[in-house]
Each structure stands twice: as structure tokens, then as C-alpha cells.
């Protein structure tokens, strides 16, 4: 019940963010900036803890977000991040951004494939991966790539709740479980 309510509130915040971005006529720019912001959040657990910590002053947490977004970010992007932080939803910011990206992609009749790799994917690799997913499952996807050294090698693709793990990390873990 609590999870359902949390997911519902995340969806509501995502709709609000999208509404602000569309009102500012900067939906694509806000979406891409939020995606980069979410990628930065995912690779830093300290940053996630700081944004979710209620002991830290709200202004200080907003200032941290401004520093991450840098000066070139769209004012709508800064506004929506500040709104979420001020509302005390800093711990759910990554989930809200994911919901924003998913809903924006859904608006284009596509789904989001979050891809983690040890090295950055080239544009050609992203296009071929999207084509491969389309060919295998018939789903049009938008690739959101994230560099994660923990993958060691290979790729991990997440489409919603589906995971296609082709990482060296998972193979090493499989070897470890076999040894253990």
C-alpha cells in the first residue's frame, strides 16, 4: 500500500515536471538534462544520501543540485529539481526523473532501455542495440546509456522490469556462486 502510494506520488511529480517543461516549451532539453542529472545521481550514493537527508538544510541541498546542473541548465530544469527538493522528495528524485523520461518516451510511443556499460557506447552501438531490441522483442526503445565501471565489461540492459545482463561482472558473480 505504501509502495503503491509512493509510486503514485512519483508519477504525479513526474507529470508535474513534464507539465512545467512543456509549459516552458523545453521538454526535450529538460528531459536530456534530467537524464544526465539522474546518471550523476546513480553513480554517487553519497549524493543520493545527501539529497535524501532531512537533517541537511533544504537550501544547501538545492545549492548542491544547482552545482550539478551547472550554469548552462535550462531554468525549467533547475525549477523542477528545486521543486522536488523543496517538497522533501530528494530521496525520490532519481525515481521521479526516471518516471519523467519513461512518460516522455511513452508520449513518443517508445520505451526506455537503460544501458550500463564499462565504457561509453558509440552512437552506432546505441543504434544497433536499439535495432537488436526491436528485432528481438518488437519494442521501439530509446537508449539511455550510463557508464558504470562496476559492469567490468559487456552491457546490462534494463527495459522496465526486464533485465538483459551480458556483463563480465555477472559472469564473475556466477563463477563465484559456483565456487561457493
Amino acid at each position: 500500500m505504501a509502495d503503491h502510494l509512493a509510486a503514485e506520488s512519483v508519477g504525479d511529480y513526474a507529470d508535474a515536471v513534464l507539465a512545467v517543461a512543456r509549459a516552458e516549451r523545453a521538454a526535450g532539453e529538460v528531459e536530456s538534462e534530467l537524464a544526465r542529472f539522474a546518471a550523476a545521481l546513480r553513480v554517487s550514493t553519497e549524493l543520493q544520501s545527501a539529497l535524501a537527508d532531512p537533517v541537511i538544510d533544504v537550501e544547501r541541498r538545492m545549492r548542491i543540485c544547482d552545482d550539478l546542473l551547472a550554469g548552462g541548465a535550462h531554468k525549467a530544469t533547475k525549477a523542477v529539481v528545486s521543486m522536488v527538493i523543496a517538497a522533501g522528495r530528494g530521496g525520490e528524485l532519481a525515481g521521479i526523473i526516471d518516471a519523467v523520461i519513461d512518460r516522455a518516451a511513452a508520449g513518443r510511443n517508445r520505451r526506455v532501455a537503460r544501458v550500463r556499460s564499462a565504457v561509453e557506447l558509440s552512437a552506432d552501438q546505441k543504434a544497433r542495440l536499439a535495432s537488436a531490441i526491436k528485432a528481438s522483442s518488437g519494442i521501439d526503445v530509446e537508449i539511455h546509456a550510463l557508464v558504470d565501471p562496476g559492469v567490468v565489461g559487456g552491457i546490462v540492459t534494463e527495459i522496465g522490469d526486464d533485465v538483459i545482463d551480458g556483463s563480465v561482472r555477472s559472469r564473475l558473480q556466477q563463477m563465484r556462486s559456483d565456487l561457493g
Binding site: 537488436a132 528485432a135 538483459i164 551480458g166
Partner: peptide, 18 residues
């Protein structure tokens, strides 16, 4: 794992998915 190996692993993954 050098760049070539990474590229090979990624391409192999894409081919496998396809």
C-alpha cells in the same frame, strides 16, 4: 580489458540480443 575487447564484448552482446 582494453578498448578492443570492450568493443568486442559489446558487439557480441548486441548480436546476441539480435
Amino acid at each position: 580489458l582494453d578498448a578492443e575487447v570492450h568493443r568486442s564484448l559489446i558487439d557480441g552482446y548486441i548480436d546476441e540480443v539480435a
